[in-house]
Amino acid sequence: MLDDITVDESVLALRPDFAVLVMTAHGLDNGPTDDRSRGWLSAASDLLSAEGEEEREARAAKIEAWREAYRLFGAKPSRTRPSVDALTRRLPLPEINQAVDAYNSISVKHALPIGGEDLDRYDGPARLVRAAGDEASEESLGTPDAGEVIWRDDTGVTCRRWNWRQVARTRLTEETVNALFILERLEPMTLEELKTAGEELADLLAELSPGVRVASRLLSGGK
């Protein structure tokens, strides 16, 4: 699965600094939010509240990079916000399920867009492309605009506007056993921080599911 994931050259033409760390987790034992995952969310919220001016400026720069990327393909980031922008405005952080709580806490900690997908609900490999405008989507999300950056599989859209909102079809649920996590980076975030975030997420998944098998692959520069 990881070897088949691709980022189209047309996306890299928009933002040559884009990189994505894709991670698979097989053998998850997911479940409803519990005290442990609630603690992860609380710690991430507390981190935001305790930030000094320098940390706030660094976080704002990372989020602004995504807002600028949205404008490049015609989206209005004040109307459809990048996922990390929307998430950091929701305090206290929402409780979804243990696996989602895990990646949301890492997303907020690093000001990094992260998506979680149910691998068993995928049809073919994930790929990041510029939309033709006729891709199958869910009614609640609407059809993507031509040129919009989307994640998709063989069936159609899995996430609109780069990382704005994912479809229900591939969403992580309490029944998810095999998952795909998508960690997306733009400068000024470094590749080293991206890798660190991935390692931290893998550690949380291992806490949830001691037998989980995690693999990862970094895609950047069209590779």
Rank of each mutant, 00 (worst) to 15 (best):
K76E: 14
P77H: 05
S78V: 00
S78F: 04
R79K: 08
T80R: 15
R81Q: 04
P82K: 10
P82Y: 14
D85E: 14
A86Q: 11
L87E: 01
T88C: 08
R89G: 01
P92S: 00
P92C: 01
P94V: 01
I96D: 06
I96F: 14
I96Q: 05
N97G: 02
A99I: 10
V100W: 11
V100R: 05
D101Y: 11
Y103G: 03
S105E: 04
S105Y: 10
I106H: 13
V108K: 04
V108L: 01
V108M: 00
V108R: 05
H110L: 02
P113C: 07
P113E: 08
I114V: 15
G115A: 13
G115V: 06
G115H: 09
G116N: 12
E117I: 15
E117C: 13
D120K: 11
R121V: 03
Y122R: 14
D123I: 08
D123A: 11
P125C: 01
V129R: 12
R130D: 02
A131E: 03
A131D: 02
A131M: 04
G133A: 02
D134K: 09
G142H: 08
G142A: 00
T143P: 05
T143E: 03
P144M: 04
P144A: 01
D145Q: 14
G147W: 15
G147T: 05
I150V: 08
I150H: 06
I150K: 06
D154V: 00
D154W: 08
D154S: 04
D154K: 04
T155K: 12
V157P: 07
T158A: 03
C159G: 01
C159N: 09
R161A: 02
N163C: 14
N163L: 09
W164P: 00
A168Q: 13
R169N: 02
R169V: 02
T170E: 12
L172Q: 07
T173W: 10
T176F: 13
